[in-house]
């Protein structure tokens, strides 16, 4: 990430880490540097046309979770209009078919354990 160090941008908030984050479970911890309170905006396009404020305050982190598949854009804005470079969160949930296979294996093993315990001793 190229950091521009001009005096004008000194008060510009910055997300920690790179410009994109990808997640397989729809959640990620956002952390940032800022001098004062910020508003955290979430949108679905680069132009932030449908931007929604999901947090406003002085904290330096926010736990984002429960996002559906898609690419999300986030940015921080300060009261005096400073805007951070945008961050892209790319959500690609794990394969549902693999998840269902694991559920099937887990259910099978569990049923056999339950069966073995409930059946008890068979050859005494």
């Amino acid at each position: 990430m190229a950091l521009v160090t001009s005096p004008v941008l000194a008060a510009t908030p910055q997300f920690d880490g790179g410009p994109t984050v990808s997640t397989e479970a729809g959640n990620t911890l956002l952390a940032w540097q800022s001098d004062g309170p910020v508003r955290l905006e979430l949108a679905s396009d680069d132009a932030f046309s449908d931007a929604r404020v999901i947090y406003a305050g002085s904290a330096h982190s926010y736990f984002l979770s429960g996002l559906a598949d898609g690419d999300y854009r986030l940015r921080l804005r300060t009261q005096d209009g400073g805007t951070s470079p945008s961050l892209t969160v790319s959500v690609r949930h794990q394969s549902l078919s693999r998840a269902l296979w694991l559920v099937a294996i887990g259910a099978f093993v569990t049923l056999l354990v339950i069966g073995a315990v409930l059946r008890g001793a068979r050859d005494e």
Binding site: H93, L96, A99, T110
Partner: peptide, 9 residues
């Protein structure tokens, strides 16, 4: 929710 249903068993 794939991550969540995998967590069950």
């Amino acid at each position: 929710f794939p991550a969540a249903i995998m967590a069950i068993f």
